[in-house]
Each structure stands twice: as structure tokens, then as C-alpha cells.
């Protein structure tokens, strides 16, 4: 088994996919850092100050004005209301929600990439891990060895999990080191509020907790990792089912993008919450953003993801051990 995994790892490293992924992440992080820097500069110019309290106060006023406008939908109004209450809570307790610094940038980057960007990067590796053996014809060599088929597949799957862990780590390290050049490397101990919950009546602040940013980040990483594993497993399954890597990637890509679009418009279609792609934004539960469909909780989303994960894994192994290879 060890040998098999080593063999798979060797193929992974030889393909240099990880390097490509690191370059993509690096370029994007640099872009976002620059955009963030510009945005800060614009804000400073507009408000004439760096003071975060003034900036939040101004945001609150803008939100209040948007809420009082008669032309916005009820749903949007409620979301604004929640964001507003959260801002007000931060302000009342004198806590800066986005302490400038690389850790904060990293947090925001993670929260925004959990849904689409990280899954895409994972897909790059996961979707051809099996099907490329088909297209290169090496699958026959692999299967003629005196090893059980499920062991071959398992070694591939373990390699995938290791690669995903590495991708998440690369995203973290690169976003920290690149944004730190501009924003500074401090801020691990900055206070972050978590435990907001969204109810019908609006934002519930009864169970709010104050934690250090590094703690919050570690939790975020855990959630990002889980999402990446689930998406990776499903791509893995498609890679087993569909011989063509491009087709497998296309299906997965369509699902992910559908998820991103659906999250914005499914609030009235309740059964959509059983789709895995609507449940990807796990970090929302940590920072108190309202879920796309009312009544969704962290455990619900994780349950849905785990069921999809188990089903994907089962189908992969079942099909791979049964199917004819020619």
C-alpha cells in the first residue's frame, strides 16, 4: 500500500500540477491584494480618515439608507438588516471587524474562495487522477499488477486527499506572504467575533464569542478543507465514471457554477438545500452571514456534504472494481 501511494505521489509531483496551482493562486492573490489596497486608498480619500470607526459608521448609514428605500426586495432588506446589526455590534463593542494585516486578508480570501475558487483548484487535480490513466493507456499496466483493484483506487484517493491538504495550505501560505508585503504581517491576535446566529427576528447576538484571529483562521481552514475534500471526491467519482477528463471537468464545473448562482436565488425553493453545491459556504456559519435558504445550519450543511461524499466514494469504488477495462 505504501509503495502504491508513493507511486501515485510521484506521478502527482511529476505532472507539476501543484506548481501550476500555486502559480494561479499566487497571481490571483496578488491581484486581490492590489484591489484591496486601491479600495482602502479610495476610502481614505472619500472619508478623509483611516479611522475604522468612521468607516463602519458610514457603512451603517449607507445600509440604513438602502433599507429605507422602498424599491428593494424584502429578502435583500433582511440581509442588509443583518449586516447592519452586525456592524453596529462591532462598533458598539469597539472591535474592528477587519483589523488591517495579512491574517485578516487571508481570512477574507478564504471566506470568498471556499465556494468556487478552492474547489476549482482541487478539480484540476481530482478530475484526471483516474481518467488520465485511461487516456494514456497506463491503466492496463496498473491493473495487471498483482494488487487488488480497490487498493489501487484507494492509493489514488489517499494521494488526492494529501494533495488537497497541500492546496489548502498553499492558498493559506501564499495569501499570507503576498498580502503581507502590502498590509504587514501582524494581526494573528486580533479579536474576531463569532457565534452570531440568524433567526427570523434578525440577528441573534446572545451567543457571541470573542476569539483570536488565529483560532478563527484555523477553523476556517478546517471548513475549507472539508469542502475541498467533498468536491474533490465528487470530481474523483466523475473521473472514474467518465473516461474523458474534459467531460468530467465540464460536469463538475457546471455543478459548481450552478451552486454559486443558485445560492443567490433559491431562497424560495426549499428542497434545493439538499444539493451539495448550495452548502459549500460553510464559513458563513462562523461569521454570521445568513445562509441561502432559511433554516440551514452548520450541522445540516455538513450532513448533506458528508452524504454526497459517502455516495461519491461508494460509487467510485463500486464502479472501479466492477468495470471492464479494455
Amino acid at each position: 500500500m505504501n509503495k502504491l501511494i508513493q507511486n501515485e505521489m510521484m506521478k502527482l509531483i511529476a505532472k507539476k500540477r501543484l506548481v501550476v496551482i500555486a502559480i494561479i493562486i499566487g497571481i490571483l492573490v496578488a491581484l486581490f491584494t492590489y484591489a484591496q489596497f486601491k479600495e482602502n486608498e479610495r476610502q481614505r480619500e472619500k472619508l478623509g480618515t483611516d479611522d475604522w470607526r468612521t468607516i463602519i459608521q458610514q457603512t451603517i448609514i449607507d445600509q440604513q439608507n438602502r433599507i429605507s428605500s422602498p424599491r428593494i426586495s424584502d429578502e435583500w432588506k433582511q440581509q442588509l438588516q443583518i449586516a447592519l446589526q452586525q456592524n453596529q455590534y462591532y462598533l458598539d463593542h469597539d472591535i474592528n471587524p477587519s483589523e488591517p494585516g495579512a491574517p485578516t486578508f487571508m481570512r477574507i480570501f478564504l471566506e470568498n474562495s471556499i465556494e468556487l475558487f478552492i474547489p476549482l483548484m482541487v478539480m484540476v487535480i481530482a478530475s484526471d487522477i483516474v481518467s488520465s490513466e485511461h487516456s494514456q493507456g497506463s491503466i492496463k499496466l496498473l491493473l495487471t499488477r498483482p494488487v487488488k483493484r480497490w487498493k489501487v483506487l484507494l492509493s489514488k484517493y489517499i494521494t488526492l486527499i494529501l494533495a488537497i491538504s497541500l492546496i489548502v495550505a498553499i492558498a493559506g501560505l501564499l495569501s499570507y506572504s503576498i498580502s503581507g508585503l502590502v498590509f504587514g504581517y501582524k494581526g494573528w491576535g486580533a479579536p474576531v467575533l463569532t457565534g452570531f446566529s440568524v433567526t427570523d427576528a434578525g440577528l441573534n447576538t446572545a451567543s457571541v464569542k470573542l476569539i483570536d484571529q488565529w483560532q478563527f483562521l484555523l477553523m476556517d481552514f478546517g471548513l475549507v478543507w472539508l469542502v475541498a475534500i467533498v468536491v474533490g471526491t465528487l470530481s474523483f467519482m466523475l473521473s472514474v465514471l467518465i473516461r474523458s477528463t474534459a467531460a468530467g471537468m465540464g460536469v463538475m464545473l457546471a455543478a459548481l457554477i450552478a451552486g454559486a448562482i443558485l445560492s443567490n436565488m433559491v431562497s424560495s425553493w426549499e428542497s434545493a438545500k439538499y444539493f451539495f453545491m448550495v452548502n459549500l459556504k460553510l464559513t458563513n456559519y462562523m461569521n454570521g452571514n445568513p445562509p441561502p435558504i432559511e433554516g440551514m445550519t452548520l450541522s445540516f450543511s455538513m450532513m448533506v456534504l458528508l452524504i454526497w461524499w459517502a455516495a461519491g466514494l461508494f460509487v467510485s469504488f463500486y464502479v472501479f472494481t466492477k468495470k471492464d477495462v479494455y
Partner: peptide, 29 residues
């Protein structure tokens, strides 16, 4: 590379476990 991946894998698992316990069992301040 394998070793580093394993270490990160475990680290993220810890983070995930922590997130879940913190979300459900954490005491409000």
C-alpha cells in the same frame, strides 16, 4: 512532500473538529 501533506491534513482536521465543537459547544462571552 508526502510528509508535509500529512501534517497539513491533520492540522486541517483539527481545525474542522474545533470549528464544529466551537460552533455547538462554545460558551458565549
Amino acid at each position: 512532500v508526502t510528509l508535509i501533506s500529512v501534517i497539513f491534513c491533520l492540522l486541517w482536521l483539527v481545525g474542522l473538529g474545533w470549528a464544529v465543537t466551537e460552533y455547538y459547544a462554545g460558551k458565549p462571552d
